[in-house]
Design a protein around this nucleic acid. Sequence first.
DNA 1: TTGTATGCGTTATCAC
DNA 2: GTGATAACGCATACAA
Lengths: 334, 334
Amino acid sequence: MSSTIKDVAKQVNVSIATVSRVLNGQGGYSKATEAKVLNAIKELGYQPNAFARGLINNKSNTVAILFPEVSSQFSSKILRGVEETVHGFGSSVIVCNTASHGQRTMKYLQLLAEKRVDGILFVSEIITEEYYDKLESMHTPVVLVATESYQYPLPFVKVDDKHAAFTATDYLMKMGHHKIGMISGNKEDIIAGQPRIDGYKQALANKGLTFDEKNIVHSKGFSFTDGLDSLPNLLEQAPDITAVFAASDAIAMGAISSAYKMGIKIPEDLSVIGYDNLPISEMSIPPLTTVAQPLEKMGSVAANMLFSMMNAGQKIESRIMSHTIIERESVRIL
Amino acid sequence: MSSTIKDVAKQVNVSIATVSRVLNGQGGYSKATEAKVLNAIKELGYQPNAFARGLINNKSNTVAILFPEVSSQFSSKILRGVEETVHGFGSSVIVCNTASHGQRTMKYLQLLAEKRVDGILFVSEIITEEYYDKLESMHTPVVLVATESYQYPLPFVKVDDKHAAFTATDYLMKMGHHKIGMISGNKEDIIAGQPRIDGYKQALANKGLTFDEKNIVHSKGFSFTDGLDSLPNLLEQAPDITAVFAASDAIAMGAISSAYKMGIKIPEDLSVIGYDNLPISEMSIPPLTTVAQPLEKMGSVAANMLFSMMNAGQKIESRIMSHTIIERESVRIL
DNA sequence: TTGTATGCGTTATCAC
DNA sequence: GTGATAACGCATACAA
């Protein structure tokens, strides 16, 4: 099939040791033999065998990334950042779609353990004891992205969700709104749910506004249909609100579509601010004002952390990425 | 570090051959030893080493997929389908972002060759001679997704672009439109560009309508901003059109946003039909009528083809996937 | 039913 | 400068 180091050696009449040396540029050979070897490599179309190398070096030049859902704009953006920097290190990235399913995730980890991946990125997942034990047994660097673990000492890179929600709500108030509703996403979600609710409440309190339970509706998740379904409920509970903070861009898009159906004009009748700054927020009508997470950057930062851990072997500090308000046209100045 | 087959053998006082046998369930050992071995494996937390296995079997249980851009909804959907079926086969998928860049692509192929991936999926790319030669030298099954090669005998899975464009245009005519414009995307694109233009023209001709060059504008690409920029031009050239066929959903979304800015109502003043049926088409205001490509399905079909090729070693037939019109609310009945 | 020995393609440690 | 050769962890042909 594919030619080996042995074939090259034979062709040039040197030992495999020598070939290996020039292959790795270690020196200890004459210019002449180097040229001959290099030439033979070209001629034979020799490809180093990653299996053999891995066996010796215990290194696969591969990292894995696990998502609850690969095919979301959210995941895609992170993946983009990860892929770019991983490729820069000469490594490859394996993607895994866990569907937030425990058994499936464990099966993946097993596979990744056998493949001896050099590092693992966990996106938007809660780390269970089962996962953690497995990860520990693998002795593989791990970094969390857009999530964190309160139980286990895993480094993470994410935005401060509570702070970001505070900023979004505060922005609305700065624009003159006092009656502000919220579509919260899943409040059971300890990472992306509750903290954003807390941030919203705190911003209100900070300006001396009292929080009213009627101004918030808790959707099941963070999707478009969640927004679509929730806005009518919110408006029924709280007809007097002039603005709504949606816990995700998808929810915001759903709310906007819902408003459109009900003949409510955005932002004339109702202002909307989202969360994430996905590509869809640009495509919205009107374009969506939102608080941005630097997703691609987060991916690349996380990947860099992984490589630091592999090389230095040291524990790495977590990173809180800064969020920013992207002003577009879905919020009206009151 | 990690324990090996040898450790297991020692623990149970059998030979490594025996351990290997029960590991692979080949039979040829007593129930008693099997139990003991299995037990020791659990106890020691033994993990098979994929490097060693790969070295012997010449199989990595890994396939690679190359995209011009990983972080698009288009790519994501395909990836989702691929990941699902590949995982079903107990393999992993490596993602590569080529950026449609020759050198970068070649570097990827080199890496994949060294890793001895079992198969390669090429999405939305033109296969150059350089790529093909490299692929040939790798002796690795390849299947093309959402593209095809006129020069090289590579199996593909895609929609019939010309036919789909015909269907879209024909749908518009069935809804009573006679003056139909098109925003074509990149007409130099031999796979996704020209065929869709041809389909549009043919649908017109089929109903006895004459094609007018003024009714079409060729954007640089297939993106949102292409649609945003192109609609005004189209409307200037052809003020009397009542409907437009956009060569992608992103273009359609851009056109709709553009119309919104110009105070043109969709679909009352102008009907729009897209192409792809990405998730965004649901989120559009109004929801976008479009011709759907079954992207996720295409991914899974392509992956299945890959495994057939690996196992059977046989050449595989290409697959033309059927497209369908998804009726939503962006087309008005005239 | 089980064990021994060889080889897969490299790298690395010795020698020379 | 260069060449043998022993690992790396596993599968398998061949013996027993």
